[in-house]
Design a protein around this nucleic acid. Structure first.
Length: 422
RNA sequence: GGAGAGGUGGCCGAGUCGGCUUAAGGCGUACGCCUGCUAAGCGUAUGAGGGUCAAAAGCUCUCCGUGGGUUCGAAUCCCACCCUCUCCGCCA
């Protein structure tokens, strides 16, 4: 969440950020609410101070066996008033808190301003679109022996694919390859978390209250299926103060991700492109504020390297303000080329949240001068498997319909050189 | 599911027959001294969040798992809930 002090000192900037992010939030209302709250709090503090003081006097009088009945009578009224003010204050505080929760993070200055993805900025690409001497098939055409959408639909509904035999093996190979790379080459620490979390955790990273409709919710226990490992992993250190020496903390985690994708029906829903349940390896970092800029670049690089190892052409773009998520200050997307489908698919989104999530979730560190500060949090996919899977089989397909296995994951595929179904 | 124990500051850990607890003590951390260097030792400081203030100092409020209640006054008493640990049962 945004710092209310910052908001009060930069009202116009915050208002502009709300507009640039296509959000709706009443900044003026917050300023007014805050002012009102402070007034009530002042009255409350005064009265409470009086109560505390007299209570001490009463203690003294009683100790000397004196008569305190007059003070007690007075305090009876004061206690009543304190209770009333306290209730009013609590109400104002939650009202203010909830209003501030609705304010999105302010984009970095360098983020291009724009309404939608058409204003996103091209950064770079790696390798080039592969040339085929035959017409490459789409992943749906290729995946007859790898995926079973029909039966997934039978079990649950559309958007819940089944991976079969070599499809399952290939997906598992991708996950293990990514995890191993992050753990043994990029020095991340692997964590495996619950896939179901409570409301507070969901709020800490910014999914709630805004995106409740996009989450699978278990009514009976008021719990949510995670939409990404970002949620449980970032909240690992919620309400904690880390030692300065503990930073940076680098986690990597594999989890399934669950998304209702409410309102996006009909858009890119073919095959594996947009599904309700998918697997993803996620990188999460907690860093000192001055290090988050560099960490963002590094994490984009970590994700890119995976695609390079898999021999997949991709491009990196920076999201404009309108395409930026609610909690993010700056985001790079990596889009992999799928030659059969003839389009770029988003396989990774790497974001710097600065102190926005840390403030919500209470993730702080003790600096070298002993002061307590909020950390900066970042996360990025490295990578989501379904679209990587698509790009991989479309890119490495052969004229005879077989699929060659890239060198780097052969060892994860029991040494299989290519998947041949003829 | 049954029984028991427990949740206090960055960490460990005192403290509950209500009131000098403005939470003891230790560890850790910061600064200084000492030392050829490191370690040890000595000294000093050190919970978090808010209000007031131009700012600092100061003053002040809140917070001892969460939420209620009793009281002039609650870490301490009462009620409900959550979580952790141990044992038993059931089960992958």
């Amino acid at each position: 969440m945004i710092d209310i002090k910052f908001l009060k000192e930069n009202v116009e900037l915050v208002k502009q950020a709300v507009v640039n992010k296509n959000e709706k939030a009443d900044v003026d209302k917050i300023v007014a609410l805050d002012e009102h709250k402070r007034k009530v709090q002042f009255n409350f503090d005064q009265l409470r101070a009086r109560q505390n003081q007299v209570s001490k006097e009463i203690a003294g009088i009683k100790k000397q066996k004196g008569d305190a009945s007059e003070l007690l009578a007075e305090m009876k009224d004061v206690a009543k008033k304190v209770k009333e003010l306290s209730a009013e204050l609590a109400e104002l505080e939650t009202g203010l808190y909830n209003a501030v929760l609705e304010i999105p993070n302010v984009p970095d200055e360098c983020v291009p301003v724009g309404k939608d993805e058409s204003s996103n900025k091209y950064i770079r690409e790696w390798s080039e679109k592969k040339n085929f001497d035959f017409k490459p098939k789409t992943h749906e055409e290729l995946s007859e022996h790898l995926l079973d959408f029909q039966r997934g639909g039978k079990l649950t509904g559309s958007g819940f694919p089944v991976y079969t035999k070599y499809g399952a093996l290939l997906e598992r190979a991708l996950i293990n390859f990514m995890l191993d790379t992050h753990v043994y080459k990029n020095e991340y620490t692997e964590v495996k978390t619950p896939f179901i979390v409570n409301r507070k955790t969901m709020t800490g990273t910014g999914q709630l209250p805004k995106l409740e409709n996009d989450m699978y919710h278990i009514n009976e226990d008021d719990l949510f299926l995670i939409p990404t490992a970002e949620v449980p992993v970032t909240n690992l250190h919620a309400d904690e103060i880390c030692q300065n020496t503990a930073l940076p903390i680098k986690y990597v985690s594999y989890t399934p991700c669950f998304r209702r994708e409410a309102g996006s029906y009909g858009k890119d829903t073919k095959g594996l492109q947009r599904v309700h349940q998918f697997n993803k390896v996620e990188m999460v970092r907690f860093v000192r504020p001055e290090d988050s800029e560099a960490a963002l670049e590094e994490m984009v690089g970590n994700a890119e390297k995976l695609l390079q190892d898999l021999g997949l052409h991709y491009r990196v773009i920076e999201l404009c303000t309108g395409d930026l998520s609610f909690a993010s200050a700056r985001t790079f997307d990596i889009e992999v080329w799928a030659p059969g489908s003839e389009k770029y698919l988003e396989v990774s989104s790497v974001s710097n949240f600065r102190d926005f999530q840390a403030r919500r979730a209470g993730i702080r560190f003790r600096d070298v001068d002993n002061s307590v500060k909020f950390v900066h949090t970042l996360n990025g996919s490295g990578l989501a498997t379904p679209r990587t899977f698509i790009a991989l089989i479309e890119t490495w397909q052969q004229a005879d319909g077989s699929i060659q296995i890239p060198d780097k994951i052969k060892s994860y595929m029991q040494g299989i050189e290519k998947l041949d179904f003829s």
